[in-house]
Design a protein around this nucleic acid. Structure first.
Lengths: 153, 153
DNA sequence: CACAGTGAGTTGCTTCAAGCAACCCAATGT
DNA sequence: ACATTGGGTTGCTTGAAGCAACTCACTGTG
């Protein structure tokens, strides 16, 4: 990435990208939304180098996007969870998914984001396709879509 | 960035990031939304190295996100414009802006995205705060916000 | 005519982030 | 006693990004 900062840009997009624009960061956050919590699991899902994963997680914790919690003493075991600030990134992830589904998923969406209970898909305006309700991160769940193949990550 | 591809990820987010996840790419697209069209202007706005700008623009054209048009013969002059596929990235940009406005803009939003004519701001569900209409890229315009300082990019 | 300027890049060198593998440590299981 | 698991760190290598200089085609100015 080199530098990571975009100097001289007074812009919310640039400042957001300084936090989450590095390689792997968004995928780490995606996995966090999908319920991944532990170092090893992130590493296995992503195949990212361990040192890179380590620096990314620490940075996300420093920025208040993830929080690190010891969920077990002796042996010490940690988990990383999204904070409110992290959960607020949900619209970013959803809009990336929707664009990708439309333009770069020839086999159909690998994963569907549906309104929990209702079953309708999220649309471009972050509402339920079926019932029309505006949706947030906690109202939805992910399901394998038509483009999901064996062992999809 | 190294590699740029996220192998083994059957995921729309990963595939989208393979196209727009490199450093500078999103800011180039942002500027395109703001009306920047020419090589020199992108370079001046962003301060990106010219060779990097060159490779990014070519890649975005190859991927069908921008199109390169000769708008003048003799001397040949080119402009880069968003295609439909590029314009479809609007929700991604807006959600980055909204998150950045909330979490990393202490002086207030540097730029407001408002419903053209109506004047209401875009909200998190890509609708107009004031009149409630669902909005698209063509329905809005950017204005300096409270966080805009002199010579903001 | 000579010369400066502009638009749109390309070339070449340097630097720093990412990839990769190996290693460490503490505890637990067998 | 030995292997395994979780959660990392260290060290070397590779390759993307920064930077400056250069090219090339044309245009306008004195």
């Amino acid at each position: 990435m080199l530098k990571r900062e975009y100097e001289g840009q007074n812009c919310s997009i640039a400042r957001t990208l300084e936090l989450i624009g590095e390689r792997w960061t968004v995928l780490i956050i995606r996995d966090a939304f999908l319920g991944v919590r532990r170092f090893e699991d992130f590493q296995n899902e992503l195949g990212v180098a361990r040192n890179v994963l380590s620096t990314r997680l620490t940075r996300l914790v420093d920025e208040g996007i993830l929080e690190k919690r010891r969920y077990q003493e002796r042996p010490a075991r940690y988990e990383y969870r999204l904070t409110e600030k992290g959960i607020a990134l949900w619209p970013v992830l959803i809009s990336l998914v929707k664009w990708g589904d439309r333009y770069v998923s020839p086999a159909g969406p690998p994963r569907l984001i549906v309104h929990r209970g209702c079953g309708g898909e999220v649309n471009d305006h972050l509402s339920c396709e079926r019932c029309g309700k505006p949706l947030g991160a906690r109202d939805v769940e992910a399901r394998p879509g038509p483009g999901a193949k064996a062992a999809a990550a």
